[in-house]
């Protein structure tokens, strides 16, 4: 696939980005961690098929109950005789799927609203901004929980609902950036030429927004996974979609801790933390890479 790139546009930015990106330890670590996690999730069906001999990991009674961690069952088995490692991998896969879908939708909504709000300015901006801030300040989780409790949902609907509650984060970031870019000379120049607003947005604005869009996406993914996990732990949400949160909730409800099934609780929790850490590292790293004010230039 050949990209026709304009003079000092994408290609230069990409190469300078890669150069600085390599220098940021955080970014690189985060990215590697992400790859590992994503790899696990993508290859989960294969891994589980191999380990379990083609049986589904959620099948009850596949193995003996309550086995401690061993070579064959690195995380032991739970009280229904399921291999914990297999369960956790399935959970990881679904968690990431929901997170990325919901995060993606949230980012898109946030982008559209954020760009229109700041670009068009005026009353639209005031209204949209108030709504954004309102949602950000208020504790929306109970409302989200109520909605999920009463409505039977499939994965798409869940993602949509999660997105509806998460978009303000990306909207705010992107709006702030557009506001600062709007006053830059090259935008004003573009406005003077006869480009339509939409063209300006796509051609000039978006390039400068890319790092913020990426950052917004990771924030949104974190936010949606967190919200989804919170929902699950209380027992809400579709049971056919076994995310890590679902696993945790199920474990808590069935007294895993009291019975000593620590790995069942520990593994999903640790994986969730790893996902958050990885995404955050990528975010901080992105910040380091794109924000010239930071340490790099001063050499300190």
């Amino acid at each position: 696939m050949k990209f026709k790139v304009e003079a000092s546009g994408l290609r230069d930015k990409l190469s300078s980005f890669l150069a600085t990106a390599k220098g940021s330890k955080r970014f690189v670590t985060g990215l590697m961690l992400l790859f590992v996690i994503a790899g696990l999730a993508v290859f989960e069906p294969v891994i589980n098929a191999v380990r379990l001999g083609g049986r589904k990991p959620v099948e009850i009674g596949l193995f003996e109950r309550g086995l401690p961690p061993s070579l064959e069952h690195p995380l032991g088995t739970d009280m229904l005789g399921r291999d914990v490692l297999a369960l956790v991998l399935v959970g990881l896969r679904y968690s990431l799927m929901v997170g990325m879908m919901a995060g993606g939708i949230a980012t898109i909504i946030g982008m559209v609203l954020g760009i229109s709000s700041s670009y068009l300015g005026g009353r639209i901006d005031v209204v949209l901004n108030s709504i954004t801030n309102g949602i950000l300040i208020l504790p929306t989780l109970p409302l989200l929980m109520a909605i999920v409790a009463y409505v039977r949902m499939d994965m798409l609907l869940v993602s949509l609902t999660l997105a509806v509650f998460t978009w303000p984060w990306s909207a705010r970031t992107i709006r702030a950036q557009v506001l600062s870019l709007k006053e830059r000379p090259y935008i004003m120049l573009a406005k003077v030429t006869n480009l339509s607003d939409l063209e300006i947005v796509f051609k000039e604005l978006l390039v400068g927004l890319i790092p913020y869009i990426v950052a917004s996406f990771s924030f949104s993914v974190i936010g949606t996974i967190m919200a989804e996990t919170a929902l699950r732990m209380i027992g809400l949400g579709p049971a056919e979609i076994p995310t890590l949160g679902f696993l945790l909730g199920w474990a808590m409800t069935y007294g895993a801790l009291a019975q000593g099934f620590y790995t069942l609780v520990l593994a999903p929790a640790v994986l969730l933390v790893l996902i958050f850490v990885a995404l955050n590292l990528v975010n901080t790293g992105l910040d380091e890479v794109f924000n010239p004010r930071l340490k790099k230039i001063t050499g300190l």
Binding site: I222, M226, T229, A230, M233, L248, M252, L257, A258, G260, Y262, V265, L266, A269, L272, V273, F276, V277, N280, T284
Partner: peptide, 23 residues
Amino acid sequence: AICMSQVPYYLMALFLVMLFAYI
């Protein structure tokens, strides 16, 4: 601080409960 601040409260709660209430 950067690492710790990103952990969701309830996950920390789980860790704490496991560690200091059960184990």
